[in-house]
């Protein structure tokens, strides 16, 4: 498999590490008003453990550890391994911080 890193170009699979589904968003242990989130444990349980088993296109996190050390969002078909798109994580390669709550 080959992944076209937006910073390094097309590289071989061995340079990358797979993390998994890019969809889950990390919840916060605190609510917006600063109080502890009462259902934090449930929210985090979902975030840490529950995953959809997608057959088809899936946005995934990959790490280019053998290259530029960027985290990437790779759209891959899980049944054919076809890679449809590769994007950088919001904080990857950035000179300036992304705005709060940025997602990709």
């Amino acid at each position: 498999m080959r992944i076209a890193c937006p910073f390094c170009g097309e590289r071989e699979l061995g340079e990358f590490t797979y993390l998994g589904d890019a969809a889950p968003k990390r919840p916060s242990a605190f609510a917006a008003d600063g109080a502890e989130q009462p259902d934090a444990q449930d929210l985090f349980f979902d975030y840490v453990y529950l995953r959809d088993n997608i057959a088809g296109d899936m946005d995934e996190r990959w790490y280019h550890g053998g290259g530029c050390r960027s985290w990437l969002t790779v759209t891959r078909n899980t049944t054919t391994h076809e890679i449809k798109a590769v994007g950088a994580a919001p904080g990857a390669g950035a000179q300036k911080p992304a705005k709060a709550g940025a997602t990709s």
Partner: peptide, 25 residues
């Protein structure tokens, strides 16, 4: 050493891109 660097970069690039911080191994 290796996995932690990957973890730190994940936190910086994916979880908290709004933080103005850079990491160098």
């Amino acid at each position: 050493a290796g996995p932690a660097m990957q973890h730190l970069e994940y936190c910086r690039q994916v979880l908290w891109p709004e933080l103005d911080v850079q990491l160098t191994s």
